[in-house]
Design a protein around this nucleic acid. Structure first.
Length: 421
DNA sequence: TCTGGGGTCCTAGGACCC
DNA sequence: TCTGGGGTCCTAGGACCC
């Protein structure tokens, strides 16, 4: 299955594009979408990128630019982005039977055995996605996934290709010579630095190394990247692999010292994690609970701690998980600290069919029915419609979300209205 | 004062066993 | 001063991704 070629379809400035679909006044204006809690920039329009605002930059650092250039600032609206993502993915999946949804805004396609003009094919795909969803995408095509990534970069940079680029073998070396080492998929700033100290400055330089040497000095991941840049495919398409862990965590809107609101937040996250777990049809055998103070404030007493709680039996039962989470929190919580964040990670996930039956634990059909009803209720009436008492009602932990747009595609109240003249 | 959240994989090192 | 060697399992931490 590692045989290429591969295409990578990547949505342009995805969150910003979603916002623009429902608010055309945002077109051609600088727009930035913030992370949870309105903390930092997670999506930027091209206008904002040109102003030099970096991915992940905290809002308080670029407030002056916001005022100066009249930048539209938005809180993130994940239900909208998730829904738009599904629409885009469905269309793209019609173009190849073998696809891998890599992230909320990226999808790989295997193009093996497609004999036709790939660029024309990609232009058609791009147009259909734009016409049907309003989301602009770029398409990169290459012999390996890593080269498809390279091609996608080039498609985005050189707009005269119409947002589509096929990196053919005769252009490969030239393209890799022009690509600095940190821009390669899988090579971050740390490894980039150590590679540069060895005289490896560009993607091409990496392909000139003996991969066994790279593996020895670094690791197999980097060795594979080197091979892929050389045109040898060694990262197969991963079709719908169930998650190996599920994490839910949030920073609080304000620092919290008391136990009770932290427990409420953790209960909420646990309930959400259990829901995700059931959605993918898995069971968990152990959970990790953690709490953290603000690591940026060095003057305050710091406390970062986590604890793993083993469960007596693999389960997807929210009530069992809530109990375990609470026990864990009791063990690690310390009074007199200003906490910033808590969260839960479900570990050791197994498929339901493989779940071991415990001699001392009989599956409770009533409880299972309750969980099903809960999930249904959330699907039909929203997550706020029904919740556990331990999640609390005050939600003192809830983050800031000062600039949120409407839920145009997932809420009846927010459905856009169209008037005929 | 304000600085996200959710994933993956790999490696080193300690514990433990024979 | 000498005080095995090798295998497995687990965990923490570090790197990367979007």
């Amino acid at each position: 299955m590692a045989d290429g070629p591969f295409a990578l379809v990547d949505c342009n400035n995805f969150y910003v594009s979603c916002e623009r679909v429902f608010n055309p006044a945002l077109q051609h204006r600088p727009v930035v979408v913030l992370s949870n809690n309105d903390g930092c920039a997670v999506a930027r329009s091209n206008e904002v990128k040109r102003l030099g605002i970096k991915m992940g930059a905290p809002l308080f650092e670029f407030r002056d630019l916001v005022a100066q250039h009249n930048i539209e600032v938005l809180s993130s609206n994940y239900s909208l982005y998730g829904d738009m993502s599904n629409r885009v993915m469905q269309i793209v999946q019609g173009y190849s039977p073998l696809t891998e949804v890599y992230s909320i805004d990226e999808i790989f396609l295997n193009l093996k055995g497609m004999p036709f003009d790939l660029e024309a094919w990609a232009l058609k795909l791009k147009k259909q996605v734009l016409d049907w969803t309003g989301i602009p995408v770029s398409v990169g095509i290459g012999a390996t996934k890593t080269l498809a990534k390279v091609a996608n970069r080039m498609a985005k940079k050189n707009l005269f290709h119409g947002g589509v680029f096929e990196l053919k073998e005769d252009r490969r070396i030239e393209a890799l010579k022009a690509l600095s080492i940190e821009e390669v998929w899988g090579i971050g700033s740390r490894w980039g630095k150590s590679l540069r100290s060895l005289g490896i400055q560009t993607a091409y330089d990496l392909t000139e190394q003996d991969y066994r040497h790279i593996q020895k000095q670094f690791n197999v991941v980097l060795a594979r990247t080197a091979l892929e840049l050389g045109g040898l495919s060694c990262m197969p398409l991963e079709v719908m692999v169930p998650r190996k862990q599920i994490r839910v965590s949030r920073s609080f809107g304000e620092r919290i010292t008391k136990y009770e609101p932290i427990r409420e937040a953790l209960s909420s996250f646990t309930a959400r994690a259990a829901e995700k777990l059931r959605a993918q049809g898995s069971l968990t055998q152990a959970i990790l609970v953690f709490i953290q103070t603000n690591r940026f404030n060095e003057k305050e007493p710091q406390h970062h701690q986590s604890i793993v709680m083993q469960l007596p039996v693999a389960t997807d039962d929210t009530i069992m998980l809530l109990k375990a989470a609470r026990k864990g929190l009791e063990k690690i919580y310390k009074p007199n600290h200003r906490y910033k964040k808590t969260g839960i990670i479900l570990l050791d996930l197994t498929r339901e069919a493989n779940g071991q039956n415990d001699l001392f634990f009989e599956a409770n059909p009533k409880r299972q029915a309750l969980m099903e009803a809960l999930d249904q209720c959330h699907e039909w009436f929203g997550r706020k419609s029904l919740h556990f008492a331990s999640e609390g009602v005050k939600c003192a932990w809830q983050g800031r979300r000062g600039y949120v747009s409407a839920h145009q595609t997932t809420s009846w109240e927010n459905l856009p209205k169209v008037y005929a003249k």
